[in-house]
Design a protein around this nucleic acid. Structure first.
Lengths: 140, 140
DNA sequence: TTTGGTGCAAAACCTTTGCATTCCT
DNA sequence: AGGAATGCAAAGGTTTTGCACCAAA
């Protein structure tokens, strides 16, 4: 794991664990608290303070993305080389479906251009109810 | 102001003040704290607790929209009859430019359909630097 | 050895809530 | 009068920070 060394951070066990846990979470977005619990369950002792500090460093370095949905806490995900994506978020079960749409991206670029606005980032979140929850609601 | 009566809420001075302040804010999105300060400056005594309670009621009734950007606090705006809109948010000066794009809306509907997802709401925020800030940065 | 990282506990924020009081209707 | 709304202060949840200790380079 010389990723850490490459970005100028010391290779500590805590940072390795946090990165590994983010990797394991795959496409799921996790809160700091969730990371904390997961690590604790794996008998890894990493304090919440460290988790926040490390996530913040990784975010500044562009390795992690911080996402804010409708509630008042932040979600984090590894910002791998994978393409940018947006979210369909189910308000019933909390499932998050990722998607990417070329047309939408293109329109965003045009709109920014019209306003002479330089885009550094963007987030599109669509809220509602996923297929499963809809079916359940219909049968109740 | 029989709006309040119409929606089944008692017409109190606090609620009138909050609504008026939201109206005055026009297209700006304000935090609960900002509302609080504005009202205090106008010699209106409304407690933060009441502001949160009223905003929450108005949101449930669909009169107010709650927005979450990149920081960990919520912004509120009057949800007038005006069309839904998205945001260009300047990370330098904080300016928020609203826009609406039919193509993007259409694509969102299609994407939801593909996933058998029922949309209740969505938010698209584009972050970056506005024209003014760009110019300033360039000349420095 | 030196610099940076960590844990703990405390503090800082934003938001919600319990309760006594006050206000609409 | 009676139910609803408010203010205050306290509590809740998330995130940040100061400081003493510890670890990587």
């Amino acid at each position: 794991m010389d990723l850490l060394k490459n970005i100028g951070l010391k290779t500590t066990n805590q940072r390795k664990q946090i990165l590994q846990t983010l990797k394991n979470a795959a496409n799921k977005h996790v809160t700091a608290e969730e990371l904390f619990v997961t690590l604790k369950n794996n008998a890894q002792n990493v304090s919440l303070a460290t988790i926040y500090r490390v996530l913040s460093q990784l975010e500044k370095l562009g390795l992690v993305k911080k996402l804010n949905f409708e509630n008042n806490c932040s979600y984090f995900e590894l910002n791998t080389a994978k393409k940018h994506h947006d979210h369909l978020i189910c308000n019933s079960c909390g499932e998050i479906i990722e998607f990417f749409d070329k047309k939408i991206e293109e329109r965003q670029t045009s709109i920014a251009l019209e306003h002479k606005f330089i885009i550094t980032d963007h987030s599109l979140n669509i809220f509602g109810h996923c297929y499963k929850c809809n079916k359940e609601m219909a049968t109740k």
